[in-house]
Write a protein that binds this DNA or RNA. Structure first.
Lengths: 235, 235
DNA sequence: AATTCATTTTCTGTATACAGAAAATATCAG
DNA sequence: CTGATATTTTCTGTATACAGAAAATGAATT
């Protein structure tokens, strides 16, 4: 049943077309929670599910493991990387620093075009209520920020981190009133960047991204529930 | 001729023992310049050279590509990632920021034990003249710094970046008087961390890692030579 | 001589087959 | 009934085989 694979997908110019698509497909399932942290990923099961052999599945899994989205357990096969509260905290601390760096550089170096794109992305978020819609538009905003940093290498790294943090970001936006707060913070960030206030932008971004206090507790609880569902599933 | 593979290698608990060793072996050759930037890596050639089939070679290459040490060219096979001067600059800017972050956190949070390890690593560098020896001891020092940050996630990321930057770091130490300067900078960094001067440590590390001015020109020239040698070789 | 078309060869991605090891199960002895 | 050992099954890593496509080579025609 290869109908599970998305069509040609012209953007994936990666090695091994099939493995590329498989990677995206499996990653999607991890991100959306269909395969929650802790869930086992069986090579043959996946191969059958996607209607391919083990080889491209393995390639996709190896790549996912290399970016730490999944892990290989000694004698238990592959599993979606479980994430302890501590690790979650560290991850967001790191992400916060990356984005702060992007902001700092953007405040200094952003071209008018990049600034305009950032502004447009911000405006697009205004008034959006649906968490899923906001989730997507929020990502666009943040990507525009990364790009405004002007450091291609940094952009790559931050994009990859964004990918890794994606499952958790998604959960966060379900915290009550988070969307409104998020938008207000974006406003301040944009203002700082436009004013070439590098340190201000950095600090605001750090605060914006890092998850603290009640928000963190809420996030941990969500992840716990999520993980539990996954354990049930792997029967 | 499997004699090319290092023996059992107990540390590599990674998936696929063979592929793990192959990865390390190929990476080593990239780092030492045996496979310089731009050099082609042929699957069958490597398979024959290492006395294995294409499968584990492929796994190793996929993993190397995932950490961006090599790339897959459209119809040209795999090649060691070529690095433009601009990219080199961006890479070191990024690495500088990562290390600065480690230093900032270390100044705030380092445990006495971590501090002691950092100091010991620093002292071990004193008086070392040989670039290769210093290269190794310098790495130990920097790893001790990362660990002192206390953020496991950050440590992982920084270690991975260190890996990626390794080929170029090695070249840098061949710049005249670089070793002495490097050691002196370490001294200042350690002092700042011991004094809990977070911002001072961060700034000194940024300066220490980022490659600028004459040093950068020198580095670019070394890389150019290196790359040229690689192009010759792939005849 | 140059360009185009056809043929061959090489190369890459995927499938399949196979071997060794660990885990699960079963069997037997105490 | 419990513990230990033997057997079977499953699973993972590697080798090999195969197919499709692109590049390279060669031939033929203008």
């Amino acid at each position: 049943m290869d109908s599970l694979l998305s069509p040609p997908s012209p953007n994936s110019s990666s090695p091994s077309p099939l493995a590329g698509q498989l990677l995206e497909a499996i990653e999607e399932r991890i991100v959306t929670g269909e395969y929650p942290p802790g869930a086992r990923l069986d090579e043959v099961e996946l191969a059958e599910a996607f209607g391919v052999s083990r080889t491209p599945i393995r390639e996709a899994l190896i790549r996912l493991a290399t970016i730490h989205m999944i892990e290989k357990m000694p004698r238990k096969g592959w599993a979606v990387s479980p994430v302890s509260p501590r690790r979650l905290c560290e991850m967001f601390e790191f992400m916060g620093e990356l984005e702060a760096l992007c902001g700092r550089l953007a405040a200094r170096r952003a071209t008018p075009f990049q600034l305009q794109k950032l502004l447009a992305a911000h405006e697009a978020c205004r008034g959006v209520k649906d968490p899923d819609d906001y989730y997507r538009l929020n990502e666009v905003f943040h990507v525009a920020l990364y790009e405004a940093s002007g450091n291609e290498f940094l952009i790559e790294q931050t994009l990859e981190m964004q990918r890794r943090a994606r499952p958790y970001r998604r959960l966060q936006l379900r915290v009550p009133a988070r969307i409104d707060n998020s938008f207000a913070e974006h406003e301040e960030i944009v203002a700082a960047i436009r004013a070439n206030d590098a340190e201000g932008a950095a600090e605001k971004l750090r605060q914006h991204v890092t998850v603290q206090g009640e928000r963190f507790a809420h996030l941990v609880k969500s992840v716990e529930k999520w993980r539990a569902a996954g354990i049930d599933r792997r029967s």
